[in-house]
Structure formats: C-alpha cells, structure tokens
C-alpha cells in the first residue's frame, strides 16, 4: 500500500538517450545469453514434444503417411469424442469449483485456529494432496467397491439401498469428481490460506467498526483482496484437472462404457491400447485451445489488478 504511483517514470533526458540505448542493448544481449540455457531446456522439454505431437497428429495410423487434418475430421464424426469433450469440461469445471469452495471454507477455518495449533492442522489437511494420487485412488477404489466397500456397508446398516458407485455412469462421474476434489482441495486451502494471511488484520478491524458481520467481512474484504490468488489458483488447477489421468485411469478406467473418460485417459486408450498413436495425439492436442480460452477469460483481469493491494 505504501508504494504510491511511481510506475510511469518515462522519457529520460533527450541528450542521454543514444548512449543509454546502446548500453541497454548491450545489457539485454548479455541477459539473453544468461537466459539461453534455460531457454534451451524449455525448448527441449516443452517446445519439441509439443511440436512432435503436432507432427504425430498429422500422420496415419501406421505413422507412414502425412494425412493432414484427417485425424481431426475422423474425431469430429465420432460421438465418443464429443462425449469426452463434454465429460472433460464437466469434470474439470465441477471439480475446480468444488475444490475452490472447499479450499476457501477450510482456509477460513484454519485461519481462525489459534496460531499455536495451526501448524498441526495445516499439516494434517495437506495429507490428501501429498499422498501420490495413484495410491490414494486405490484406497478410494476399495471404498467404492460394490459388495465389500465401507460406504455400502454403512448404507446397509442404515437401511439405505446400496449404490453401484462405479457401475452407474452418474455415480461414477460423481466418484471421480469427489476423489479429485479430495486430492486437490488442500492445494486450494494452502493457497487461499496464504492469501488470507496477507490481508491486513486492520482491514478486518476497520470493517468490524464500520459495522460488517463475519459474512460481510468475507464478502467485501477477503474475497476482493484474494481475487488474484483465487483466479490464478483456479486457472492452474483447471489446467491440471483438465489433463487429469491417474484418478480416472485407476478408479473407472473411463468406464462404464467410456462415460467417465477425459482427454488424458481417452487419448491413452486410443493411442496405446488402440495402437493409433496419431489419433491419441490429436485428442490430446485438443486440450490446448480449450485451455487457452479459459486462461484468457480468467487472466483478463489479473494483470489489470496486479499491484492493487
């Protein structure tokens, strides 16, 4: 808050400009050279695989001939593809919303725990996020087992009809999202907790004196102050959730009848099991434009408001 408007200091004295420009050019070349190793690593690990995926997507099944957009044309005609698009969006958006809500609420609870016991709770609440998801998903798989699962056992004792957790398409989608929320909300919790801690306590005190109750403090103070973190966390999580593989793969493997497949698992199924690597590459490439649109909308406001607080 203390740094006032100092951002628009421009236009140095005209006489100095030439010298300064050559110095700055020299400096930027040196800077570029220093950044070059990193640029090379990024190029090797990101640009090359991405380019290779695009290349693969233009080949035929046996990877012998260039077929242009034929793979995409083929995909567009398949109902399963559109189902996967729909499921991926549903999965990612629902899961991120719930993760954000759960993370936000839990962050507020943790924030209000006295400082002494807070570390302990923070540590414990992070556990779902720290366990490798492949392992924890296996535990969930047993919990959802139709005949021997803990859930159905409880239901049986309560006289509630048993649920075919992973056998019914809607329940299976619910389960996949539930596990994803369970794994992912601690990350939101920790991000939101950090954001919450950076909201000056005096703003809450000022709001209290201005007559705000706890809900109004959250709505008028915390939410706007945490806005950037909320948006950026949501975006990153959206990307990761969209590309989720392990949970779906282990819990349902896309079933029943492909009704829980997301891009990652379906691409894997097509490419590795179906032996059609170009088609799998085409499917996975489809994530990029969808995420780009999401990123545009979410980040649109972030830069504008970047240094407001």
């Amino acid at each position: 808050m203390a740094d006032a408007v100092v951002s628009d200091v421009k236009t140095p004295a005209v006489g100095r400009r030439v010298g300064r420009r050559s110095v700055s050019r020299h400096r930027s070349i040196v800077g570029f050279l220093f950044a070059l190793p990193l640029i090379a690593v990024i190029a090797g690990l990101v640009v090359y695989p991405a380019g290779y995926a695009i290349h693969l997507a233009t080949l035929n099944k046996s990877m012998q001939h260039f077929v242009g957009f034929d793979n995409f044309r083929f995909l567009f005609k398949r109902n399963t593809f559109w189902m996967v698009v729909e499921q991926s969006c549903l999965f990612a958006v629902t899961a991120v919303i719930f993760k954000a809500v759960v993370g936000f609420v839990v962050a507020h609870f943790v924030h209000n725990i006295p400082q002494k016991g807070q570390r302990k709770w923070r540590g414990m609440l992070l556990v779902p996020w720290v366990i490798p998801p492949a392992m924890s998903t296996l535990a969930w798989l047993w919990l959802f087992d139709p005949s021997y699962s803990a859930f159905n056992w409880v239901f049986a004792h309560l006289g509630i009809p048993q649920v075919a957790w992973l056998g019914n398409a809607y329940w299976a989608r619910f389960c996949v999202i539930l596990v994803n929320v369970w794994v992912g909300s601690p990350f939101f919790m920790i991000m939101y907790l950090a954001a919450l801690k950076s909201v000056p306590e005096q703003l809450h005190e000022a709001a209290a004196i201005d007559g705000a109750n706890w809900l109004q403090k959250i709505w008028y103070i915390n939410l706007p102050m945490m806005r950037n973190i909320i948006q950026i966390t949501a975006l990153f999580s959206l990307i990761v959730t969209f590309a989720n593989f392990d949970i779906v793969k282990i819990l349902t493997n896309g079933g029943p009848v492909d009704q829980t497949h997301v891009f990652g698992t379906w691409a894997f199924t097509l490419a590795i099991w179906g032996n059609d690597i170009p088609l799998g590459a085409s499917v996975s490439l489809f994530m990029a434009p969808i995420l780009a649109v999401a990123a545009f909308f979410i980040l649109r406001n972030v830069r504008k408001r970047g240094n407001e607080a």
């Binding site: 703003l203 005190e205 000022a206 008028y220 706007p224 102050m225 806005r227 407001e308 607080a309």
Partner: peptide, 15 residues
C-alpha cells in the same frame, strides 16, 4: 458500538 476509528496505517480498503 456506534464508534468510528482512524488507524495508524489508515486501513483503507485498497480495492
């Protein structure tokens, strides 16, 4: 309590 307070660091809502 129907009071108003001015804080040392002003505590203005930045947003």
């Amino acid at each position: 309590r129907d009071i108003a307070m001015v804080f040392q660091n002003y505590a203005l809502y930045p947003h």
